[in-house]
């Protein structure tokens, strides 16, 4: 009996070791891969006063796995993996991004929890459903990427060949426009376009862009207003078509698709994504994080990754990013008031 007990115990121990080993395995692999990078940066880091190479960093994505924000964060985390003890990505979706960002804003201020802050940081507050979330709770590290809204419909939808068709149709009929969540940027972008064009859409919110795109593919809604990166594969396969993008200039990936401006509707709206840490984080930690992540963002691996996933790299340092977020909050507060969308 004793023997069996001992055996079982040993077994349980070894099993748990195996399980733990599985988790730990990636650490040595990760630091090996980026070993030279962190060594090279070592002297720099010491000059700055903070060394984060022993830190385990968790990157919080306030949206579901598989979406655009998630993809950018995972790509960046992979490019930066050599500079930390280890780095993991965690999805905390819900409430249009408020859940994850609130978590990140109230997290430890030692740089171990870096949050993907997105345009919703401004739009949620403008809408009044921010659950106490405000951009001053964050100290932005940097902006990483930006994307304009792309008005996308089914490719075989004969009603709409151009944005003008779509707008004219919506003046006499009810069109369902899917977005990634009520009060989220794609909702406001679509609403902003409708306002400029003097029409109205019926906005349908989902938890993330994925659900909206799936519903569009199934023909349950008429259009989605999400980023081009999120619909790219379906445009390539010929299932969906983009009518117009809400950018200043045409997108490189789809040079034939006009901007809303060209069509006569002054709407330049879209998302931006960056990294932030709680506002109380010491400046030297933020500086070191900026150094690590901007290095990662400029690496070839990340550039290739972003090109593969049709995302546009758009880097901005923490200070200008902070100013920009403030301006965006003003812009969206104005838009929400004009459109009478305020909830809370």
């Amino acid at each position: 009996m004793k023997k069996i007990t001992a055996l079982a115990l040993a077994l349980a121990m070894s099993l748990s070791l195996v399980a733990c080993g599985g988790g730990d395995n990636k650490t040595p692999g990760g630091s090996n891969a980026g070993g030279s990078g962190s060594n090279a940066g070592g002297s720099n880091a010491n000059a700055g006063g903070v060394d984060l190479s022993g830190l385990s960093v968790t990157c919080v994505v306030p949206y579901d796995a598989g979406g655009g924000t998630d993809a950018v964060m995972r790509g960046l985390a992979d490019a930066a993996k050599g500079s930390f003890k280890n780095i993991t990505v965690e999805n905390r979706s819900g409430a249009g991004g408020a859940t994850g960002m609130l978590y990140g804003a109230q997290a430890k201020n030692d740089g171990s929890i870096v949050t993907m802050i997105t345009v919703e940081l401004a739009t949620l507050e403008a809408m009044g459903n921010n659950a106490g979330l405000t951009y001053t709770q964050f100290k932005p590290i940097m902006m990483v990427n930006s994307a304009a809204a792309a008005i996308t419909v089914k490719a075989d939808d004969d009603r709409f060949d151009t944005l003008e068709d779509f707008i004219e149709y919506s003046k006499t009929n009810k069109v369902q426009v899917g977005n990634s969540g009520i009060g989220a940027i794609w909702h406001l972008a679509a609403a902003g376009l409708a306002k400029t064009a003097g029409t109205e859409f019926n906005h349908v919110g989902y938890d993330g862009a994925n659900g909206a795109i799936t519903d569009l593919l199934g023909g349950h809604i008429d259009a989605v207003a999400v980023s081009y990166a999120e619909v790219n594969s379906f445009v390539q396969s010929g299932d969906l078509k983009v009518l117009a993008v809400m950018a200043n200039d045409r997108l490189e990936a789809i040079p034939d698709v006009p901007t809303c401006k060209e069509c006569g509707y002054e709407a330049v709206l879209g998302t931006w994504r960056g990294l932030g840490v709680p506002a109380s984080t010491p400046d030297e930690v933020v500086d070191e994080l900026y150094r690590i992540f901007s290095e990662a963002a400029e690496s070839d691996a990340f550039k290739e990754f972003m090109a593969n996933t049709n995302n546009v790299i758009d880097i901005m340092d923490g200070e200008s990013f902070n100013t920009m977020i403030g301006e965006q909050l003003e812009l969206y507060t104005g838009l929400v008031e004009e459109l009478d969308l305020k909830i809370g």
Binding site: R92, G94, A95, G96, A98, T99, L102, Y103, Q106, L124, M127, N129, A131, G132, G181, I182, G183, G205, D207, I343, G344
Partner: peptide, 22 residues
């Protein structure tokens, strides 16, 4: 937690993101 359709906060103490997240 935060309701996913209108973002209304249900049964959560003010400012407690643990409850807000559901």
């Amino acid at each position: 937690g935060i309701d996913s359709v209108t973002s209304y906060i249900r049964f959560s103490p003010e400012g407690n993101y643990n409850f807000m997240g559901g």
